[in-house]
Amino acid sequence: MFRRAMADPRPEVGITIDGAAVRAREGDTVAAALLASGRDVRRRTAVSGAARLPFCMMGVCFDCLVSIDGVGNRQGCLIAVREGMRVEVQRGARQVGR
């Protein structure tokens, strides 16, 4: 859906998305890294299971909710990627204890 516009001078950051290795860039938010990955990163809503992707990218809509390093319901658009970060697309509600 999106591609990087040009040679990006920022250092690469390695993260995993649902276990697969993905190269992001320093300064990317998690939501931006997901959208730039080319992978199917649609989450599923807790209410009806409908497919969603990030909508507002500014902390308002909560459609970018993901699990980061085992903690669910994080707003991916407000959190910067870190080397080794484990991101999982959230399908349905946050699981108890995660």
Binding site: M1, R42, R52
Partner: peptide
């Protein structure tokens, strides 16, 4: 609410923050 519908501000944020453009 469909995946692929976003705000213009979201696309602008992706452009500023990560240099991403629609493809």
């Amino acid at each position: 609410t469909l995946p692929g519908v976003m705000t213009a501000g979201a696309a602008q944020g992706l452009l500023k923050g990560s240099g991403l453009v629609p493809d």
